[in-house]
């Protein structure tokens, strides 16, 4: 009976999750008002940045996402996240020297069959925003495909491209560019 009560709780809870997930799709979100200019004149007067969450999309926080990286990781897990792979300019080919890094990631994932990960594809700032988003996507997918080739279940690996939006080093040097053209690995759930 006790188990039944607990079971019922789960059923209700899960139903609620689906209920809210269903609402999320149909709901339209409210965006805050456009701020009028602060002063008149020929130039644009940018208004101050708004409070952090002017509009909150229902469900926006769901699904781990970037917050997952904030989990305190130790040892092997930390090494897993800390080791990026890198790419040549305008290329999404896995470099021979990065195969070892990917093999290490595959053996970690083999040892932890419940771990799900996300691969982030990044580009350096050269080139256009739109193309770099596509390039980052190809880089993330290339890394994912290599892990799948090494035997990891594709369902455990999600990808996201950030294009040129999240450089590790904002400097405009070849060294910074090389560092920023990367595939980054994030553990979502253990």
């Amino acid at each position: 009976m006790k188990n039944f009560g607990r079971g019922l709780c789960y059923v209700v809870f899960i139903s609620l999750i689906f209920f809210f997930a269903g609402c999320e799709k149909k709901k339209v979100e409210q965006v805050s008002e456009i701020t009028p200019p602060q002063q008149q004149g020929a130039g644009i007067t940018p208004s101050a940045p708004g409070p952090k969450d002017d509009i909150t999309m229902p469900g926006a926080q769901a699904g781990g996402g970037q917050e997952a990286g904030a989990v305190n990781l130790t040892g092997a897990a930390k090494a897993f996240e800390d080791n990026d792979i890198h790419f040549d300019y305008d290329s999404f080919s896995i470099r021979p020297e990065d195969r070892r890094i990917l093999a290490e990631k595959a053996s970690y994932l083999n040892a932890k069959p419940n771990v799900k990960i996300r691969v982030e594809g990044h580009a350096d700032e050269r080139g256009t925003t739109e193309y770099n988003l596509a390039l980052g996507e190809r880089r993330a997918n290339a890394a994912k495909e290599y892990l799948v080739f090494l035997g990891i279940n594709a369902a455990r690996i999600s990808t996201v491209s950030f294009g040129e939006e999240k450089p590790l080093d904002p400097a405009q040097t070849e060294e910074a560019y090389a560092l920023n053209r990367r595939g980054h690995f994030v553990i979502l759930a253990q």
Partner: peptide, 18 residues
């Protein structure tokens, strides 16, 4: 288009593009 009447559309998440 001449830069007058500028304003931010607040919200939209941390990263908005295109």
């Amino acid at each position: 288009c001449d830069g007058t009447g500028g304003g931010t559309i607040k919200g939209g998440g941390d990263l908005v593009l295109d």
